[in-house]
Design a protein around this nucleic acid. Sequence first.
DNA 1: TATTGTTATACTCTATAACTATA
DNA 2: TATAGTTATAGAGTATAACAATA
Lengths: 153, 153
Amino acid sequence: MSKEESGGQTPPVRRHDDVLGYLLKHAYLASEEQTDAALAELQVTSRELGALRVIASGEASSQQEVAAVLGVDRTSMVALLDRLEDTGIVARHPAPQDRRRNLIELTPAGRELFDRAEQVAVASEREFVAALGARRASELRQALRDVLSTASV
Amino acid sequence: MSKEESGGQTPPVRRHDDVLGYLLKHAYLASEEQTDAALAELQVTSRELGALRVIASGEASSQQEVAAVLGVDRTSMVALLDRLEDTGIVARHPAPQDRRRNLIELTPAGRELFDRAEQVAVASEREFVAALGARRASELRQALRDVLSTASV
DNA sequence: TATTGTTATACTCTATAACTATA
DNA sequence: TATAGTTATAGAGTATAACAATA
């Protein structure tokens, strides 16, 4: 006996904005759009800032490590770093112990740009979650971290 | 006087996974990947299911309304609905009062597919947020809704 | 004139495969 | 043989512009 035949108790169809995937996708898109708009005056994208952050924090030193930390393919890193190198924001140096690897460093100008861009990004994020207040914003971040640490196993 | 000259108190660089944009992007990607894997046996994608849901819920009736509710361009809707129509999941009919508009309906087979796919998607979501427990999962959803309702103004 | 759906086209992000230089 | 970076290429997903049918 189908659900429809068992007394007309078909559950109502979920609305699109009750779906977690929808909420995550559009929160991501809105967040990136807002941050990119704020970063535009510095002529850097949130994608580029993500790579700069991984380099500045010491989480990665070679191209491939940057790509791995950010979860993208190493081939996607080439064009991104090409532009950052052409504009004098990063420098590539062959690693002394293994000349296949490119060590990526922020130039002094790149470090200045990063510091300013990161301030802009932090302010943009804070504005993005302003409706939540500090505690719920922190809980949101932690929930996403928890979900990711189990999903990415 | 720059921050570096004021006593060496440069704030530590944020780690990449403390950045809300990173967390949202990768939570979105992981969620979609998991749902798409679960839906593969039904030969429907989470993107298609999103359109079917908007049609099934009555939130939209024409192609352009479906696109607007989902926040994509109307031109992106054409190929997606082409496939769903070719496989007998939806039907397009010109609206009697305005023959420019295409009313989109689920076929009986489409409605069956939608009901099964939605069950699969709900189960996939539940698994995705299993680490949070019911209350934090609900709070996550609400936080994303709150953030989106202020961001999309 | 304006709007719906459509097509053609292009751009971004991503990934796969093959190449090079090094190990 | 294997690995880091690179190049060429292709596939999604998205958007803009122009067109046909209809209002």
